[in-house]
Design a protein around this nucleic acid. Structure first.
Length: 421
RNA sequence: GUGAGCGUAGCUCAGCUGGUGGUAGCUUCGGAUUGUGGCUCCGAUGGUCGUGGGUUCGAGUCCCAUCGCUCACCCCA
């Protein structure tokens, strides 16, 4: 029996990886246009970091973390999300002292022990952005502008939904009003009854049409915001309007992590099966302090790479692997030896080049060259080699010209590079 | 954690109410008169029918178990 990958862990094979590279390249380019700096952080952290940041009653912490005890007896966890690690690194490296507003991005794998389904894996990948040190509403709008631009440059569409969850000053009053309402509303589904006790906010996110009808009369968080939060939310919306970014306020939108305050947002689409979010984020103003750092506000968002790749694939926007510049076709052992040296020299000269080592016939080497999508083939046969020549064939036009071999292979390679590029 | 569907070649799949695994398509490899790719034609490689039991004269097909995959619930990127 061969060994297979773990459930929910996927290989990204040639043919797929090109799409991933396209996504990553597009995103990195946009991140740099927004003056973000990349930060690379470990994927393994002390378990406490995630418990303290994500919240000990969230689903992620309660049942989805890859947690184990290492050889020293310490409890470690494969990160289920990126923010906690980046904030830990921000605090630990004293990045506040280097720049009062730090704009960071990171790209990498996350791990959650859930049952896999379409658009959801146990190891999945996110590109995430964290901006620490500013609570300006324009930063919030800028986050959404960035996420929207990434979608646009990938050629994808999704709608932006926004909400405000208030702050520790105004949220308790809403929670109470919501609980009161939910206890007065009787005809709600069993799931909602259960959620009402564990996470009342989440009840509003119920997918049952009947429940949604009831909740139309539920208290809205937006009516309970304190004046600072109200002003902040208004200015976020104003920012989006200044940037001409379409959005929809969804006061039922909640997030799965405890640390969010004020602005939250999601980029949603109907093309991902049961999953709807391609990207999501929000503000987390007390979190850095809560993790033992300075009292600086923060906001961030993440986009799911698998989900983006899935959307691109569904729209037929997959990318072909880049072809070769030149395929060296050599016949006979003398030519093969020269060809071997020439192929390496071509790479020194900056070309993408390869050759066949299986001693195939000319016809089959040409087939290989065609399959490799080579733009040119250099045919070195025994006859030509004896005359100090080879044949340079343009694989697209099928035109071919003699190529005179003078001097060393390094010289040939530079001359070929000049002709081919 | 719960539920449903599906496991036949590297991939996509035929295989009827049980009666010998398909000249199947794609891929891979080779060939179509001496040394020229793509198109076409020909040929070859490739399978313990997921695994283990059971029923039967006989199981890819029916039954049970098990493993795996997929989708959905929960939740989320």
């Amino acid at each position: 029996m061969s060994i297979n990958a773990l459930k929910g862990f996927k290989d990204i094979v040639p043919g797929e990886v090109e799409t991933w590279q396209f996504i990553e390249k597009t995103a990195r380019d946009i991140f740099h246009r927004f003056d973000l700096a990349e930060i690379k952080v470990p994927i393994l952290e002390k378990t406490d970091l995630f418990i303290r940041s994500i919240g000990d009653t969230t689903d992620i912490v309660e049942k989805e973390m890859y947690t184990f005890i290492d050889r020293n007896g310490a409890s470690l966890t494969l990160r289920p999300e990126g923010t906690a690690s980046v904030l830990r690194a921000y605090i630990e490296n004293g990045l506040l002292a280097k720049k009062t507003v730090q704009k960071l991005y990171t790209i990498g794998p996350m791990f959650r022990h859930e049952r896999p389904q379409k658009g959801r894996l146990r190891q999945f990948h996110q590109m995430s952005v964290e901006v620490l040190g500013s609570d300006h509403p324009r930063v919030d709008a800028e986050m959404m502008a960035m996420a929207t631009l990434i979608m646009r440059e990938l050629g994808l569409s999704a709608s932006l939904e926004i909400n405000s969850l208030g702050c520790p000053q105004c949220r308790p009053a809403f929670n109470k009003a919501l609980l009161d309402f939910l206890h007065q509303t009787e005809s709600i589904c069993d799931d909602c009854r259960r959620r009402r006790e564990t996470n009342p906010l989440r009840v509003l996110d119920c997918k049952s049409a009947h429940c949604q009808e009831q909740y139309l009369r539920s208290p809205s968080i937006l009516d309970f915001l304190c004046s600072d939060c109200t002003t902040h939310f208004a200015r976020v919306k104003e920012g989006l309007e200044l940037l001409a970014i379409p959005y929809r306020v969804n006061s039922f939108m909640v997030r799965g992590l405890d640390y969010y305050t004020r602005t939250t947002f999601e980029l949603v689409t109907g093309d991902l099966g049961a999953q709807s979010a391609v990207g999501a984020g929000g503000r987390y103003d007390g979190l850095v302090k809560q993790l033992g750092g300075p009292d600086v506000p923060g906001i961030g968002f993440a986009m799911g790479m698998e989900r983006l790749a899935l959307l691109l694939e569904q729209q037929g926007k997959t990318l072909a692997a880049p072809g070769l510049d030149l395929y060296v076709v050599a016949l006979g052992s003398a030519a093969q030896s020269k060809g071997f040296a020439l192929t390496q020299a071509l790479r020194h000269a900056g070309l993408t080049a390869t050759m066949d080592y299986q001693d195939r016939s000319l016809k089959n080497q040409m087939k290989q060259a065609g399959k490799a999508m080579a733009r040119f083939a250099l045919i070195m046969g025994e006859e030509e080699l004896a005359r100090g020549e080879a044949v340079l064939r343009n694989m697209e036009s099928s035109g071919q010209v003699p190529f005179v071999l003078t001097g060393e292979v390094g010289t040939w390679a530079r001359e070929l590079a000049a002709k081919v590029i």
